[in-house]
Nucleic acid binder design. Structure first.
Lengths: 129, 129
DNA sequence: TGAACGCTTGAATAAATGTTCAAGTATTCA
DNA sequence: TGAATACTTGAACATTTATTCAAGCGTTCA
């Protein structure tokens, strides 16, 4: 059962696993405790959002104050287009919301604990030095 | 002073900023509070490590138990090579350490609060549903 | 109405990233 | 010593990703 994928392929001669199982007990027990594939995938997708300095800057800025696209693009010295593309990604990830006032679109944080997430990351980064 | 980069370019006709400044006061005050460029860059680099499901899985596994490369590759149904490449990235980021015992290399977590970081990410992911 | 402004969008481009492949190193053991 | 095992490494490849460019949409205001 446990070796469903891997062993099945081995029997088919696919040689997906290019090594012998050394600590079968450890692997089995870890496999039992591992969360669903999908959960870990979503988790990675979530952190991917924070893995770009432009988006980090935008989130940091919006944590200080609601801002329009133009303001952000001036602040970061980027084109409105580039900023707008990143804002779309942040919005799709439910990290940011927008409201329209005439021609101007104001963006602000949707998630309250973004600062907490930053702090967690910073505490590691600082530890290194 | 504040507009050093942006305004200088505008005067040179470079048109880097394709908009007028709408809320100069907001942009200035946010600019004051923004951390150093390098800090935000490092922060993004840190989260980038967690932005890949293979690395998330490896970290999760190592949080359960110390494992050798072969064990991990069987657990995740990947080649040793692919796992080894990712372990190198995790090691360079000081998230993982290794010890050698004969032919076998055992990897384990170097950072104690990886689970905390996961939990923070998960709490957001779960909120969505 | 039409020009100007703020923003968005899709396609194109360049850069970064993950995995594979084919070699390599280091260690064990017969 | 030499074959086998565990792992590493660099180059190649395919995929993803961020930014740019050019065009478009929606709103305001003269």
């Amino acid at each position: 059962m446990y070796w469903g994928d891997c062993m099945a392929r081995r029997l088919q001669g696919a040689e997906r696993c290019d090594c012998d199982v050394i600590h079968e007990d450890v692997v089995n027990s870890v496999k039992d405790k591992m969360p669903q594939e999908e959960i870990l995938y979503d988790l990675a997708e979530f952190f991917k959002i924070f893995g770009d300095s432009t988006r980090i800057k935008i989130l940091w800025a919006l944590d200080e104050s609601e801002m329009c696209v133009c303001d952000i693009s001036v602040l970061l010295n980027m084109t409105q287009s580039a900023v707008s593309h990143q804002l779309r990604i942040l919005k799709q990830a439910d990290l940011v919301k927008s409201r329209k006032e005439g021609k101007i679109v104001y963006y602000s944080l949707l998630d309250e604990h973004i600062r907490q997430i930053f702090d967690q990351g910073l505490s590691h980064t600082i530890e290194e030095n």
